[in-house]
């Protein structure tokens, strides 16, 4: 029994306790930030599946968050339960994500970045221009918070635990998925598509699946985002959110399972830490991203890994 083997579960336990107890000491603002972190982490985990595990770049994740948010907002303001909003949002995310996967069958890398970037802006234009459905620039106000097993979640703290529960569920589901044959197929796709094909993996199908599942997880995040902010309009779902989610994945560590947890935490908390710098925090953030890319190709999670690997011979 080496210390290294126990480090993982110990950190996991500490983080879980922190996430459960910390909000009890916080006021409204702190609880809101933690809820936002949970939602963004879900979206970033979806992108991490597409980008980090299957190696398909997507600059449209923000638009998928928007699809989920609009599905949830429209249905819950019409009196339907959030669960239906989630089902519809995730279903739409799967379908549109599957369709967006088709270009990935033809083009790769930077071309794919451009196609998905274009798709994000097109979806934003639809959210904004089709006001008969989405309320256009006026947005949708008064999105209700759900009742979970009869329990109202209007209290910020209760809603935070709902967000956290969703995050844990998504984490568990993605963990199981990645351990399944599908997960191994995704990684084979990233490492060497040609070899994957020769091993009998249907690369076509798994490429589409990687897009569809990653995007649907993004939409699921959107269905939680809508009741969190209780008012949505098209602007949060423009290209900016997609770029931010991409940077979160990269900073945390693309292809590292818990990378998005860390990446999203930095993106949410950095403006707080750098409050003294006023508007400069984005300058610092951009510099951080560049430094991470140049010096830590594995992201910040890569450091932890390197430390563990470095220690293993000594500990073992």
């Amino acid at each position: 029994m080496s210390a290294g083997r126990l480090a993982g579960p110990a950190i996991g336990l500490a983080v879980t306790i922190l996430l459960l107890l910390l909000p009890l000491t916080l006021r409204g603002y702190g609880i809101y930030l933690m809820s936002l972190w949970a939602v963004l982490t879900i979206a970033a985990m979806g992108l991490n599946l597409t980008l980090g595990y299957a190696g398909q770049v997507s600059l449209a994740q923000g638009a998928f968050v928007g699809i989920g948010a609009y599905a949830a907002a429209l249905l819950t303001t019409a009196g339907w339960p959030l669960a239906l909003g989630m089902a519809v949002g995730v279903g739409l995310g799967l379908i549109v994500g599957w369709l967006l996967g088709y270009p990935a069958l033809r083009v790769q890398h930077h071309y794919l970045a451009f196609v998905t970037l274009g798709a994000n802006t097109l979806l934003f234009l639809v959210f904004r221009n089709e006001d008969w459905l989405t309320g256009g620039v006026y947005g949708i106000p008064g999105i209700p918070r759900p009742r979970i097993f009869g329990l109202a979640t209007d209290d910020p703290l209760v809603f935070y635990y709902f967000c956290l529960a969703m995050l844990l569920l998504v984490t568990l589901a993605l963990g199981l998925l990645l351990r399944s044959p599908w997960g191994r197929a995704f990684e084979a796709l990233r490492e060497n598509p040609v070899r994957a094909e020769s091993l009998g993996i249907d690369t076509r199908r798994y490429t589409l699946l990687a897009f569809a599942i990653g995007s649907a997880v993004g939409s699921l995040a959107g269905t939680v985002y809508a009741p969190l902010v209780q008012y949505i309009d098209p602007y949060p779902f423009a290209l900016g959110m997609s770029l931010n989610l991409l940077l979160m994945v990269v900073v945390g560590g693309s292809g590292r399972f818990f990378g998005p947890w860390l990446g999203a935490a930095i993106a949410v908390l950095l403006p707080e830490w750098l409050r003294f710098s006023e508007g400069l925090y984005l300058v610092f953030y951009a510099l951080l991203v560049i430094l991470v890319l140049v010096f830590l190709p594995g992201g910040l999670m890569g450091i932890a890994e390197r430390l563990r690997l470095g220690r293993r011979p000594v500990a073992g």
């Binding site: 890398h109 930077h110 970045a113 984005l282 300058v283 953030y285 951009a286 510099l287 991203v289 560049i290």
Partner: peptide, 10 residues
């Protein structure tokens, strides 16, 4: 590609 996105923000 990702680094130049960050350069743009910077």
């Amino acid at each position: 590609v990702i680094a130049t996105i960050a350069v743009g923000i910077l």
